[in-house]
Design a protein around this nucleic acid. Structure first.
Lengths: 386, 386
DNA sequence: GTCAAACGGTCAAAGGTCCT
DNA sequence: TAGGACCTTTGACCGTTTGA
């Protein structure tokens, strides 16, 4: 880069070679992009051209490609300086912009709407949120019902969704609140089964889920079921402070009694559910809609083990759909600046949740070893063991 | 401009990098305008370059643009000091003289030029990102150095940060690219140690980190160190397709050979690092700045085990700070609609990463049992065991 | 107050990328 | 394949800041 003469922009200047619009001084001569590139390539490649005619071909914008010999000659004639050509440079990365994002149903427009402080652009997000909220409500009703026996997970997944048949189910007195009392292992076990059962009904409300093959459905559910269980447990726990997880029945898990459990590693698991999930949910004042969207995001996990590679992209697209919906839900309520913080904080609860689930899986395996003491229901095992 | 060396004017002095005519002392080294600007831009942008050859390219006036990796390395080798770069100067205003053309009758002072100089509504985010990028750059260089022995983690954390003493360290020939070859256990082990060592230097660049008590620092580091290791491993892996993780030395981990490993559970761990971290990073086209911010977010984990409750809020605030910076970084580049998607997708990689780390910890423990076969370095153990 | 060294910013003009 | 619109990178030149 040795600028011939500093300063000076040609205004309406023409290419000295072909009379196209000049884009600047290139190699010492006002020239267009084409002639500039042609000159460099010719020099660098060392090509020599032969004129098919008499060596005096016309060179202008329309016919400049007709004779490369005469074009190159004219380049030299008008003063293009080969000494201005440099040595090869290092490669630069891709210059192409938008590569991310699947095909967008809505045309692409706003690129500079960054400055507008109100998001405003919910294209279908409202509807998604509405649907999630409706299902959440049904699911909370179903929790109070007696659910039919189910042999195994696969059969349950292929049965009609119970959420739309609640009126035909009897209510379960064991789920109704009576009085606060410490949860026995029986309580915890019963609620685990109930919640995992609800999970199966909940996932069936997603069209994109039911479209998946049986094995892919299993992959997502196995990955997600215990998360669903824990999240519902703490989110719907009545607020008796940060030290109690309370089931709808009034059974509660207190922070201390875990000391009684002698199995190593089990001690902290309820503490962590309180500290890292229940308390943050309350502090962030997560709404039911936000909570539902968050669960949907966690369900559609493209990295779920055993998920077939062909559907990874679809699952990722679903996740993105709910991520976007959650973003607009939050920012339309809190504004962009505050909303973005809540959105980020909520999403960043996911790694802790994952870690808690991972630890819990270990515990489940430990418990299996101690199976003669703590009976693990086979239904639970099927969903949670890896 | 603190380092006002009482130097004489360089007379006929040559650029220490490329031997062009030096225009003065820049960043502590006699250098030409080009190398001066190149160095600043590289540090500020956080760009990292990969040598297309063997990492020992010649750098002189004629070919200085041929390999940016080797040019930058030489900048550092001859002593250019990144600390002399002034992050975010006090608003210097447009260098260009005011366009006092016409339109003067309105009588408005240039009061709006303050806001127009910064494109997005970022309050300090730019500076945060710049700092992260600069550190990332230094860290990449430190990776190629021989690091002094360190007895244990605590001592290392309380020592001065090596990132600002790179010029005093010898380069490590073992880290230079030579040729592609399958990684032996020795390679993996050596890189684990180096990367964990780098992690300790990296975290010390965060003021808010060094302000924490020793035990809180340990809590964050133990939680984060292996994440740092894995993320750097895959992010800085040269792109030889989705089936190879390539270390800077050229040692690579291939998708298949894990079958040789007979320890149960170990098989999938490298597959998952490729599928769930390396490939998504590439697909999302994560920039170095985004990558650095992502790591900062993961470092400041308020749920890190053993973190004292008093500092949870501070740590959470730090996390939010980097979340916000990342959000504005991404949306200012991609626009809100596309940016939000990328932001969400990036954050939602965190649970998978957490899960991979959790699995890996198990493996480390398994490996400890098989310690007579696979020696685990005590330094690694100290950081990764729970 | 003066002035030169050494910061950062600017933008014309280099080269690289990628679609046609 | 070659062409050229469009992109990134480079560096000579310029204004600003700072300390002797």
């Amino acid at each position: 880069m040795q600028p011939r003469q500093r300063r000076k922009v040609p205004e309406g200047e023409l290419c000295a070679v072909c009379s196209d619009r000049a884009t600047g001084y290139h190699y010492g001569t006002p020239s267009c992009n084409g002639c500039k590139t042609f000159f460099r390539r010719t020099i660098v490649s060392g090509h020599t051209f032969v004129c098919q005619y008499q060596g005096n071909c016309d060179v202008n914008k329309n016919v400049r490609c007709a004779c490369r010999h005469c074009r190159f000659n004219k380049c030299l004639a008008v003063g293009m300086d080969a000494r201005a050509i440099q040595n090869d440079r290092d490669r630069i990365g891709p210059t192409k912009k938008f590569r991310m994002d699947k095909r967008n149903s809505s045309g692409d427009e706003d690129q500079l709407s960054v400055t507008s402080s109100s998001p405003q652009r919910s294209g279908g997000e409202d509807k998604i949120i509405e649907q999630l909220a409706a299902v959440e409500s049904l699911c909370n009703n179903l929790r109070t019902c007696i659910l039919p026996e189910s042999k195994n997970v696969k059969e349950t997944l292929s049965s009609p969704c119970l959420l739309y048949q609640i009126s035909q189910l009897e209510s379960d007195p064991a789920t109704a609140f009576q009085h606060l009392h410490p949860a026995a292992m029986q309580d915890i076990k019963a609620w685990n089964i109930k919640e995992l059962r609800l999970c199966l009904e909940w996932v069936k409300t997603f069209d994109e889920f039911t479209k998946l093959s049986e094995s892919d459905q299993m992959a997502l559910v196995r990955n997600f079921a215990f998360t669903f269980n824990i999240l519902n447990r703490v989110y719907y726990s009545a607020d008796y402070g940060p030290d109690k997880i309370v089931y709808p029945s009034g059974a509660y898990i207190l922070r201390q009694p875990q000391e009684q459990v002698k199995i190593p590693g089990c001690r902290l698991i309820y503490h962590r559910q309180m500290d890292e999930i229940m308390v943050p949910f309350r502090k962030l004042e997560v709404s039911v809609q936000e909570f539902a969207a968050f669960k949907a995001i966690l369900l559609f996990n493209p990295d779920a083990g055993e998920l077939s590679p062909e559907v990874k992209n679809e699952v990722a697209a679903e996740r993105t759909k709910y991520l976007t919906a959650l973003y607009y839900l939050i920012t339309s309520k809190y504004g962009v600046h505050n909303g973005v913080q809540k959105y980020g904080q909520l999403l960043m609860m996911a790694p802790s949740i994952q870690n808690i689930i991972d630890q819990n899986d270990e515990n489940m395996q430990v418990m299996e070893v101690f199976g003669h003491i703590w009976r693990i229901d086979s239904f639970v095992k099927e969903l949670c063991m890896r």
